[in-house]
Design a protein around this nucleic acid. Structure first.
Lengths: 122, 122
DNA sequence: TCTATATTCAACCAAATGGTTGAATACCTG
DNA sequence: CAGGTATTCAACCATTTGGTTGAATATAGA
């Protein structure tokens, strides 16, 4: 489970069971076993899913005797929204203007680095 | 490459190279080879990445002789934002109110299905 | 202390993923 | 037609992932 924060966040939400867990937790905190019997997989499998969500910072866990209630955290969701919205906006903008044809330049024989790009845009 | 639209979209953006491709394409359409020499991997690897983005509906491709310019599409970004924002809002709301303790009920001996949840919330 | 409940750890397995190399296909241009 | 450029297809490989079973650990309660 490595990678930068955005990779971990997107990867965590790429699984439908995990998105369902998020939806379920949005209604209120819950423990592993409470969550687990909403699914057909084993408790251990759900435990792994929670660990992925926790590793992505999307949920946090407290302690209550032998129970470990899971709590939804808003911050990383915000990080994702900001990333997505940036490019959604740009894509829409360019669609409005129809200036795409200009951007895709003729292709100059190979040399002269075509704007090196790189960088997640801080 | 299967799964529902949201799974495909989140999964596509879980890879940093693919997010960089999106960032690069937000500035303007580009062909495979133009994109490829911004990265250290082979052209074929970038081609695969593009196929994943295309499969998720995040980009589309047109034709210009032997070239296949890649174009960023806004729609799926919108779908993701809506999903994320919904739960970010709920998480924040509940944080403000601090009513979480009430939601996490005492645990009634096992029976009586604890709100079956399920469903991506259309 | 013994027992039931809640969670985690440890192997193990099949399928998916991101990468490679090598060959094929398609299209323009001399 | 021959040659170069752009893209795709096909194996193949190592790692990750989502799942399993089985055993361990921790805590509440009789």
């Amino acid at each position: 489970m490595a990678g930068d924060p955005l990779s971990r966040a997107f990867s965590a939400l790429a699984d439908p069971t995990r998105r369902d867990l998020v939806a379920r937790l949005a209604a209120g905190d819950a423990t592993l076993t409470q969550l687990a019997d909403s699914y057909e997989v084993t408790v251990q499998a759900v435990s792994k899913h929670l660990k992925v969500l926790e590793g992505a910072g999307l949920v946090s866990r407290s302690r209550d005797a032998q129970r470990r209630p899971v709590h939804l955290e808003a911050e990383v969701f915000d990080l994702m929204t900001k990333w997505i919205e940036r490019y959604r906006r740009m894509a829409e903008e360019r669609y409005r203007r129809l200036d795409d044809v200009l951007a895709a330049m003729p292709d100059d024989s190979g040399a002269a680095a075509p704007q090196t790009s790189k960088g997640e845009a801080k």
